[in-house]
Design a protein around this nucleic acid. Structure first.
Length: 507
RNA sequence: GGCGCUAUCGUCUAGGGGUUAGGACGGGUGAUUCUCAGUCAUCAAACCGGGGUUCGAAUCCCCGUAGCGCUGCCA
């Protein structure tokens, strides 16, 4: 199985785990599974100044939450580890030395100051086609260079980029891409701190980790010719390349925290389900070709093809994500929602009552709200009246349904409800229908005032299910309170906005 | 500035020389119903511009324009 597929996701632990990164990881994962290959995780932490421990933890927890299990990587050692680049420094140094010895690279003693001045000068002169390192150290006499190195003078190792070469490679998504080598400058392979740059580490690792397909963000397209030159310098064979399109924010531009949510953690906290986020991300830049949208993991794996990945950047449409999340939320086993939703309720301090302590009660509430919520947070927030009697009534429906004429009807309902034997959804519905007929009213004239009395808002689950869940005691208590409110004529008081109960995004 | 990548409804996309240019989200309308959500039905909504190739171009080629990326001892 020497030539079976091996792909990797190689994030750098320098910040939060962006959904774009998650999508790259997902495509790698799907591709590996599709071909019965291996999905590796490699941590690219060669920039010590930008390294963040929390970022590393976030990479792990985000991938785990999304269910993107890596076959090899930190915590799951394979034959080609370690999988953290800072632990492989010696390997890169050895290979940089090889290139120095073979004449493919040379030491560069230029100071950061000189390089900055050089760049400034280039900028000023606006040299067409130039730019990049000016090869100042490329032709230092080898003897001199060796002496300076031995003397401990700091240096970096640079690749000796050949002149006048056409560097070509095939991208599985975009086709053939060609670049003239003289447009590439002599890039740094090994930094003066002894750690490799991304370019060197990436090539060396992909080679020794037997990576067969490099699927990465398209910001790497212009680096790929450099990487190819490095492969050639070592005499190594090339992996297959495929550059994935980027994910943009709605206005265009990078999706960042400024747009609200950008990281996997943000979406998790906002109440999204991992399977919904995965499904949504999969469809950003890829389409199975049939008009399918909702797909589980196995279906996505079975259908995934690189040839069907788009080359075009796509905009992250949160509304569609919400719709998709709602689809998954409605179909979720309510039992699996109990824990996350309870957590939110507990934070809100809604679980004080005896009824709320009962998991069966909470489960019933979840089932009632499930089909009318798009996010876990939204579901949780909608449940306020299941735990506390309404303190006020939504103004608009209250004006309509809690008028003076509703009072006698509510009074009658209270009487009947006190003695109703079957306090169940069907029993309640029968009662309401019967009374409506008896009183020569439409059922709505009874239903709406009751809903207001019980929930304080004009929308929500079916009234009879609501009553059954709330139970007789709470139902009667709330109806009497509403009656009191009507009688004491408080109707002018609540100047609250008609839809103040909306607006549901978790904080 | 240089180099590169990209370009179908507002958004995600299907299609790839001859199609009523299809689906989904969002929006409109209607049905169901006690409200909301859901569901179902239905409507509006697109081939960036200009040249070329061709009997015929959204599709192939070129140019332009726009967006994005790279141009670091960052990844």
């Amino acid at each position: 199985m020497a030539d079976s597929v091996r792909v990797r996701f190689a994030p750098s632990p320098t910040g939060y785990m962006h959904v774009g990164g998650a999508r790259t990881a997902l495509f790698n994962f799907l591709f590996a599974r599709r071909h019965g290959g291996r999905f590796l995780l490699r941590i690219e932490d060669t920039d010590r100044t930008r390294f963040q421990k929390e970022a590393m933890d976030e990479i792990f927890s985000s991938l785990e939450w999304l269910g993107l299990e890596w076959d090899e990587g930190p915590g799951r050692e394979g034959d080609v580890g370690p999988y953290v680049q800072s632990e492989r420094a010696e390997l890169y140094q050895r290979h940089a030395r090889k290139l120095l010895e073979s004449g493919h690279a040379y030491p560069c003693f230029c100071t950061p100051e000189r390089l900055a001045a050089m760049r400034q000068e280039q900028e000023r002169a606006r040299l067409p086609g130039a730019g990049g390192y000016d090869r100042h150290c490329r032709n230092i006499d080898p003897e001199v260079a060796a002496r300076r190195m031995a003397a401990g003078e700091p240096f970096v190792t640079r690749l000796k980029v050949p002149d006048d070469r056409l560097v070509t490679f095939h991208d599985e998504i975009r086709g053939d891409i060609a670049t003239r080598s003289e447009l590439l400058d002599d890039l740094v392979l090994l930094k003066s701190d002894g750690l490799p740059t991304y370019h060197l580490a990436n090539v060396v690792d992909d080679h020794f980790m037997d990576i067969t397909h490099v699927l990465r963000g398209d910001e790497w397209i212009s680096s790929t010719p450099r990487h190819i030159l490095i492969y050639e310098a070592f005499g190594w064979s090339l992996p297959v390349f495929a550059h994935l399109p980027v994910i943009l924010a709605p206005g265009g531009g990078k999706l960042s925290k400024r747009h609200g949510a950008a990281s996997v953690t943000d979406y998790r906290n906002a109440g999204f389900l991992p399977e919904a986020l995965v499904n949504f991300l999969a469809l950003l830049g890829w389409a199975p070709g049939e008009d399918r949208e909702i797909m589980n993991r196995e279906e996505m794996i079975a259908a995934f093809e690189l040839a069907r990945v788009s080359a075009k950047a796509s905009v992250f449409d949160e509304q569609k994500l919400e719709w998709m999340n709602g689809q998954y939320l409605a179909r979720r086993d309510p039992q699996t929602l109990l824990e996350p939703v309870t957590m939110i309720w507990r934070e809100k301090g809604w679980l004080e009552s005896e009824a709320a302590a009962d998991p069966d009660y909470r489960l019933a509430v979840i089932q009632l709200l499930q089909p009318r919520s798009r996010k876990i947070t939204e579901l949780a927030e909608q449940a306020a009246y299941f735990f506390n009697d309404p303190q006020e009534y939504e103004a608009k429906p209250a004006r309509k349904h809690l008028r003076a004429e509703a009072a006698p009807r509510l009074r009658r309902l209270v009487e009947e409800l006190e003695s109703l034997t079957a306090f169940s959804a069907t029993g309640l519905e029968n009662l309401y229908r019967r009374l409506a007929e008896e009183m020569a009213l439409s059922a709505g004239k009874l239903i709406h005032p009751t809903r207001l009395a019980l929930s304080g808002v004009g929308h929500g689950p079916g009234l009879f299910e609501l009553m059954e869940t709330l139970g007789r005691a709470a139902t009667l208590r709330r109806m009497r309170a509403a009656l009191e409110w009507i009688v004491t004529g408080e109707e002018e008081s609540p100047p609250e906005s008609p839809d103040s109960a909306q607006k549901g995004d978790g904080q």
